[in-house]
Design a protein around this nucleic acid. Structure first.
Length: 279
DNA sequence: GGTCTGATTGACT
DNA sequence: GTCAATCAGACCC
C-alpha cells in the first residue's frame, strides 16, 4: 500500500503515511497525546489509538518499569525510539508500549485502548473462544506464531497461553466491537502482540519494500481533535498516582474505564500457618 | 532460595 | 461491587 489515504473497514479514511522515528524521539508525556488517533498496524489488524499512558525514565517515574534502572525485562525500553516494548504481566496478559526518547532513556507510552479499524474478524477471532480462526487468523506473513500455537496440539498449556489462543471464555458470546481493543491486554491480543514481538520496530524507515519482514507500523491516521483530548491519573498503579499522564479521547466508546490501584489482600496461606495454599 | 507484587481481566454476587 | 487466576520479575534475607 502506498502513501496517502487508506480506507479502513472502520473509521473511514485515515492517513496511511508512517510516522517517522523522530515522532517518538520526544518525552513520553509529549508523545502520548500525539499518539491519540494514530493507527498501529500489526499484520492484518489495525487499531486507532484512543487511550494511552506515558511512563518516564529511571529515577524519574516511580510507576515506570525502568524506575530502578535497566534489567533484562525492560531492556527494550532503553533501546531506540519507535520500538515495541511488550511485557507479560499478572501471569496471563501482555501489554504493549512504544519506546520514546533516544536510546538509553528508558521511557515509553503504554497503549491502553483503541478502535479496531482493520482486521476486525481477525481481532475478534483472537479475542473469541472456540473458533478455528483463533489459531488461523495469525500469522501475517513474517509474524511469529503465538505461544499457544507454537505448541503441539494436546500439550498442556498455561492459562495464559490458553487465553492467548482464545479458549479461556465460554463459547458463544460475541464481543462488542468497542471491546475488541478496550484495555491494554485486550489491545495486545487483538493486535496479536506477544512476547516474541518485544523489541519489534514500529517505524518504517525508507520504503516499506526495503523492509519486507517488518510487520508493525504506526501510521498518521487521523490525529485526535485537541479539544477532545483529556488527561488524568494513570490506571492501576500504586505509586505516582497524581501524575496526570493518562491521555484519552473524550467521549470515545473504546476508552477503558478508569480503575484505581487495588492493593492485593494477603492470602490466607501467606498470613497463617497450616492453611491450604492458594488455589 | 523464598516471598511478594503487578501498567489486567473475566466471572460471579 | 468482589475475587481469583497465574507467573515473571524484583526484592529481601
Amino acid at each position: 500500500m502506498g502513501r496517502g489515504e487508506l480506507s479502513f473497514e472502520r473509521g473511514g479514511a485515515l492517513s496511511a503515511a508512517p510516522l517517522p522515528r523522530g515522532f517518538f524521539d520526544r518525552p513520553s508525556h509529549e508523545v502520548a497525546p500525539d499518539l491519540l488517533g494514530r493507527v498501529l498496524v500489526h499484520g492484518p489488524v489495525a487499531v486507532r489509538l484512543t487511550e494511552v499512558e506515558a511512563y518516564g525514565g529511571p529515577g524519574e517515574d516511580p510507576a515506570a518499569h525502568t524506575y530502578r534502572g535497566r534489567t533484562p525485562r525492560n531492556a527494550v525500553m532503553f533501546g531506540p525510539p519507535g520500538h515495541l516494548y511488550v511485557y507479560f504481566t499478572y501471569g496471563m496478559h501482555f501489554c504493549a508500549n512504544l519506546v520514546c526518547l533516544p536510546e538509553g532513556s528508558g521511557s515509553a507510552v503504554l497503549l491502553r485502548a483503541g478502535e479496531v479499524v482493520a482486521g476486525v474478524s481477525e481481532a475478534r477471532a483472537r479475542r473469541s473462544p472456540g473458533k478455528p480462526a483463533a489459531s488461523g487468523a495469525e500469522p501475517a506473513p513474517g509474524d511469529a506464531r503465538s505461544a499457544g500455537e507454537a505448541r503441539s496440539a494436546g500439550e498442556a498449556r498455561s492459562a495464559g497461553d490458553a487465553r492467548l489462543a482464545g479458549d479461556a471464555r465460554p463459547a458463544g458470546r460475541r464481543i462488542a466491537d468497542r471491546d475488541l481493543a478496550r484495555g491494554p491486554a485486550r489491545l495486545a491480543v487483538a493486535l496479536g502482540l506477544l512476547r516474541e514481538h518485544n523489541g519489534l520496530d514500529a517505524v518504517i524507515d525508507g520504503s516499506p519494500a526495503g523492509r519486507p519482514h517488518q510487520s508493525a507500523a504506526v501510521l498518521e491516521g487521523r490525529p485526535a481533535d485537541p479539544d477532545l483530548i483529556r488527561s488524568g491519573p494513570r490506571t492501576g498503579i500504586s505509586t505516582a498516582k497524581d501524575t496526570p499522564w493518562r491521555f484519552w479521547i473524550d467521549g470515545d466508546e473504546t476508552v477503558s474505564p478508569y480503575r484505581a490501584h487495588v492493593p492485593r489482600r494477603r492470602s490466607a496461606a501467606a498470613t497463617s500457618v497450616g492453611e491450604a495454599p492458594r488455589s
